[in-house]
Simulated assay, not measured.
Amino acid sequence: MRATEADPPSETPWLHAVVQDSGPARMARRHSHAAGQLLGAAQGLITVDVREGRWVVPAAHAVWLPPHTAHGLRPYGPFAGWSVYVAAPACAGLPQEPCLLATSALLREAVARATTWKAGTLDAAQARLAGVILDEVRSLPPVALGLPLPQDRRLTRIAKALVERPGDGRSLPEWAGWAGIAPRTLSRRFVEETGLSFTAWRQRLRLLRALEMLAAGRAVQHIALDLGYDNVSAFIALFKRSLGVTPGRYDASAR
Rank of each mutant, 00 (worst) to 15 (best):
L225P: 06
V84T: 09
A60V: 10
L207F: 06
S242E: 12
Y250N: 07
G180W: 09
C91N: 05
A3F: 12
A70V: 04
A62V: 14
L94S: 02
V63F: 08
P98D: 08
A125G: 01
F198W: 01
A25Q: 10
F198G: 00
R138C: 07
D230Y: 08
Q37K: 10
P75C: 13
G44Q: 05
L186C: 02
L186Q: 01
Y250D: 15
L172K: 06
V111F: 02
D230N: 05
D226G: 14
L162E: 04
P89I: 05
I223Q: 11
T115Y: 00
I133L: 04
R241M: 00
L107K: 05
R2L: 05
A112L: 14
H68D: 06
Q37I: 01
D123K: 00
G248S: 10
A252F: 10
P247N: 03
A70Y: 14
V18H: 04
L15D: 00
L140R: 06
Q151K: 10
I133N: 00
I133K: 01
P75V: 15
Q96D: 15
L207R: 04
V50Y: 12
A105G: 05
P150K: 03
D49V: 02
A179W: 08
P98S: 11
L172W: 09
A210W: 02
V111G: 00
Q37M: 04
A35L: 03
A112D: 10
L225S: 13
A114R: 01
A144R: 13
C99K: 13
K160C: 09
G120V: 10
V19D: 02
L149Y: 05
R157C: 11
A3C: 14
L227S: 04
S233K: 10
E192I: 14
Y76T: 12
V86S: 07
A80T: 14
A114V: 14
R255L: 15
Q96P: 09
E212P: 11
A70G: 04
F235M: 02
F239V: 08
R206S: 02
R157I: 00
D152E: 09
R255C: 11
R204Y: 10
L134P: 03
G93E: 14
V137G: 08
V163N: 11
S171I: 15
R241L: 03
R138I: 01
L106C: 14
T115M: 00
A124Y: 02
S10V: 11
V86G: 02
A34Q: 08
A62R: 15
H61C: 13
L172E: 03
A28K: 12
A25D: 08
P75D: 13
W175F: 13
V57T: 06
H68M: 03
I181T: 06
V111N: 00
R202H: 15
W178A: 06
G77N: 07
E174I: 13
D123R: 01
L45D: 07
Y85S: 03
V86D: 03
P13C: 07
P58C: 06
P89H: 06
